[in-house]
């Protein structure tokens, strides 16, 4: 029971204080890829903790509600508690909640990836028909005055550039833009984004998941900017950002992500000032913390669940063989 409460507390702390701390932290701008991993790890840890809380509640209820001797030998599930006892209700609630959450998360993950693939395929069909391949640049050009560049990820990945963008950018800026888009594809940012979207789809607009989604979208841009800067120089990347931003028609939506301006503005300022990448020690520390946050719920819940399973779950093995001390299943 204590473990259940600890797991729920873990989820609650990550959802509130953890989310706020990671959003306010300064280091993600210096290590955007590590920060993407941290956001994904935190989201996964929250979901896992709640699911495991349900399972540990069931385990605890099954054990404490078991009458002496009831768990002995071949048993049917639910082996121990009286169905209508308080413990029986708790056991059933925990199990149903855990299974429902796990099923919903899995279902939405699959649904979101399939929806993304379907939309990409529609987009690629349209591109085949209205776009033209530019073999020299390795991109698909679409005739449109709006300056825009984007990538369609996946197996048939493509980079799309409008004729408006080709007109607005000089050669150096264009190669910076292409390096940015290629980095998106190479680093497979769409997988992280689709995963983060699936959690919002599964559990509604809860702050930890919506924050993760928008932060990952922003961090993916930073990571791609860094890759482009390595190739073309950070000032050229900043310049290409400004050029494309100027060419966007007025009235286009401009979501404000970063404090004091648009996300694009924040990216440009970061490129102009320059960033010092996070050192190897701190990167390793970040990875370790992420891994710890991710595995903590499993480590806490594992012993509780396996003990209960060993006590009561096995119908082929006599339970007393596996019974841990304290399990009320020892025959009198």
């Amino acid at each position: 029971m204590i473990v259940t409460l600890l797991l729920l507390g873990h989820a609650l702390v990550l959802s509130t204080a953890g989310t706020a701390a990671l959003r306010r932290a300064g280091w993600p701008s210096r290590a955007p890829r590590l920060a993407i991993a941290a956001w994904l790890g935190m989201s996964a840890s929250i979901v896992a903790a709640v699911i495991l809380a349900g399972l540990t509640a069931t385990s605890a209820a099954v054990r404490s509600g078991a009458a002496p001797g009831r768990c002995y030998g071949p048993v049917r599930w639910p082996c121990a508690p009286e169905v209508f006892s308080e413990m029986g209700v708790l056991a059933a609630t925990g199990a149903v909640a855990a299974l429902a959450l796990a099923a919903r998360a899995t279902w939405c993950l699959i649904a979101e990836f399939r929806a993304a693939a379907r939309e990409r395929s529609l987009r690629l069909d349209a591109l085949t028909l209205v776009g033209r391949a530019d073999a020299r640049l390795g991109v698909t050009v679409v005739d449109h005055v709006t300056a825009a560049a984007y990538c369609v990820p996946g197996r048939r990945a493509r980079i799309v550039v409008t004729s408006g963008a080709l007109a607005a950018l000089d050669d150096a800026q264009l190669s910076a833009v292409l390096a940015h888009e290629r980095a998106h594809l190479r680093q497979r940012h769409h997988l992280a984004l689709t995963a983060s979207r699936s959690l919002v789809r599964a559990f509604g607009p809860l702050p930890p998941f919506t924050t993760a989604r928008s932060q990952i979208a922003f961090l993916a841009e930073l990571a791609a900017d860094d890759a482009a800067a390595k190739r073309s120089g950070r000032l050229t990347v900043a310049e290409s950002l400004l050029t494309l931003s100027e060419a966007v028609p007025a009235g286009a939506p401009a979501p404000v992500l970063a404090a004091g301006g648009t996300a694009t503005g924040a990216r440009a300022r970061r490129l102009i000032t320059g960033t010092r990448p996070l050192g190897p020690v701190r990167t390793l520390l970040g990875l370790t913390v992420t891994a710890a946050v991710l595995t903590a719920p499993l480590a806490a819940a594992g012993p509780v669940i396996t003990t209960a399973v060993a006590c009561c779950g096995s119908s082929s093995t006599p339970a007393h063989v596996l019974c841990a001390p304290g399990c009320p299943a020892q025959p009198a």
């Binding site: 979101e112 929806a115 993304a116 939309e119 990409r120 529609l122 987009r123 709006t146 300056a147 825009a148 560049a149 984007y150 990538c151 369609v152 990820p153 799309v160 833009v177 940015h180 888009e181 998106h184 940012h189 769409h190 984004l193 689709t194 979207r197 979208a217 993916a220 841009e221 791609a224 950002l241 494309l244 931003s245 060419a247 966007v248 028609p249 007025a250 009235g251 286009a252 939506p253 401009a254 979501p255 301006g261 648009t262 996300a263 694009t264 503005g265």
Partner: peptide, 20 residues
């Protein structure tokens, strides 16, 4: 492609948005 709100296909498509 420019409408990030409903962009599932690429999500990171917009290189850009309008600034003040």
């Amino acid at each position: 492609a420019l409408d990030s709100a409903q962009d599932r296909a690429a999500a990171l498509v917009r290189f850009m948005e309008k600034m003040e």
